[in-house]
Design a protein around this nucleic acid. Structure first.
Lengths: 315, 315
DNA sequence: CTGAAAGCGCTAACAA
DNA sequence: TTGTTAGCGCTTTCAG
């Protein structure tokens, strides 16, 4: 018992005893057992995190923020992948819940009802990250994707652009990209316009695919002044396609994306984009649960961050 | 006791009982306690994984492979970040070990001696991923970075290129990039050559930095036929810088990188690169520990994968 | 096929 | 300041 207290640096242990215990522990190569510690104390330092994927750079960036914030507070992230599949997400939630995490972070706000119930009933802080809703399970940290799309359209319309093409991929799975598209389309409609053409496919959004679909936009007959891409990866592919065809960006066609990725900044031409605060979202969500768990802070319902519009070379 | 067996679908339980137990569990919303299960059974399904960073796309890709392979076998990844810092790595190893994982995956082969001892003494399968050594803690899965650099130089020399520049960043921390550089330099030396100029800085390797340093190479007076970059991110930045200055790639200068990233493929000009099998490395390492743990397979000492050289537009 | 006993390694609560 | 007792929620082992 004294050893247990000494190793946890509890008070009421004499310095001499602490030293003796630590020396003994070191000499034996003692490694505590977190399973027993948690079972006995009925507390864990685990934070469960689910991400849709790791191949899209956006998610690792959010995860990095989460890991940074939680590890700084001595919490341990455990994670699972949903692969954009709500059933897999449910399974992952169920199996992570068995580890009795101190908090749970999930991507977006569109979980299955069963998953929401599971999380709500768990009694631990739950943060829905990367999107917003008025009716979170517990808390949400992010920004409105619908609004982001809407704002982009309004900004471009204000510059006099009216003939838009749209390029996207896997919108059935990437609900947030679909919301941006919907917001964009709504703004167009409100001002009496609509997409001149849309090129979307079911396969995964990649740069190569962005280039390919941009080719489609350029090949079809209706003139287009700007193309709104599902994200910057695809938009970068679109830029490369323009470079190949010697189509001038943004003079011949304006390329607009979303995220503000590193590629975007290094491109020979700066596209229009909305920079999403990915790392910051992760950091904020991580700190939120850390303070919920460690400081017993009240759970914020809704923390709204904002993407920042960047017109790049388009003036 | 019967309920416990029924939920684990152990044999020697009547179907009727199983059904009854499952119905009861569902109606109560029962969620097992993995802490107690593991403590009691002295087995966990946890796989500890350490990564240097998540902001460099390479690591999430490896992690995705690991997660894919382990989750497919019912194992649960728990992860920590080392931020390229060997001390932080040691701390992460120590705290993850307390969870009594069934296996441990660490990046590279250059852990601190103390960390190696900790892992070796743990008795669980340990896989060093992304690099090779003749003397692994237990097993290693990856390829030789030194060899990769060497091979790249030999291939380029064989094409008659002799005047090389080098661009890199953070080589004190990114040991694998440093090994590639060393292998490259060795091949040069063996054929009586050396880098005409080297531009390296301590800050993090990014596209923007690659462009900046490429500017340095182009601005200095000694002619250079090819530039070897620490990785494709920096190389892409180099390409963009050339585009900006209207320096023709590969006619005026050959750009060589490492990794075979997605950007690389979408660039308007295909650079020379060596494609590293990142996802495959993760998958292989994950499957290795899964079979070690679940099937009691003997631990492979060394699994060598190979990067594939791609000359892109350079013929 | 089902159940009773013991214990995994630790900590909370209380006693000395 | 240190030690004793009980028990966290489960599984292993053995008995019925």
């Amino acid at each position: 018992m004294t050893a247990s207290r000494a190793l946890r640096r509890a008070k009421d242990v004499s310095p001499a005893t602490i030293a003796k215990v630590e020396a003994a522990a070191a000499s034996v190569g003692y490694v505590g057992n977190a399973l027993a510690q948690s079972l006995s104390s009925k507390r864990t330092d685990l934070v469960a995190v689910i991400m849709p994927s790791l191949t899209n750079t956006v998610f690792p960036e959010v995860l990095a923020g989460i890991a940074e914030a939680t590890e700084a507070r001595g919490l341990q992230p455990v994670f699972g992948l949903s692969e954009y599949d709500k059933q897999k997400e449910l399974k992952a939630i169920r199996s992570l819940l068995a580890w009795k995490p101190a908090a749970f972070l999930v991507p977006g706000v569109d979980q299955l009802d069963e998953a929401k119930k599971l999380l709500a009933d768990s009694g631990i802080p739950v943060v829905q990250v990367m999107d917003l809703t008025d009716d979170p399970i517990d808390s949400c940290v992010g920004f409105s994707h619908r609004q982001a799309g809407y704002d982009m359209a309004v900004a471009l319309l204000a510059k006099g652009v009216t003939r838009f093409g749209y390029v996207g991929a896997a919108l059935e799975r990437d609900l947030r990209a679909a919301k941006r598209r919907a917001g964009f389309a709504q703004a167009l409609e409100e001002q009496g316009h609509r997409f001149v053409c849309e090129y979307t496919v079911a396969s995964t959004a990649t740069m190569a695919l962005g280039g390919e679909l941009m080719g489609g936009v350029l090949d079809q007959s209706k003139p287009v002044e700007a193309v709104y891409f599902a994200n910057d990866d695809m938009a970068a592919g679109g830029v490369f396609e323009c470079l190949r065809r010697e189509v001038k960006v943004p003079d011949d066609v304006v390329i607009a994306g979303f995220n503000g990725l590193e590629v975007t900044d290094s491109l020979p031409v700066q596209i229009v984009t909305a920079r999403s605060p990915r790392y910051l979202m992760g950091l904020t969500a991580g700190e939120l649960v850390a303070s919920n768990v460690l400081d017993n802070t009240p759970r914020a319902r809704r923390i709204e961050l904002e993407p920042t519009l960047d017109f790049g070379d388009f003036h």
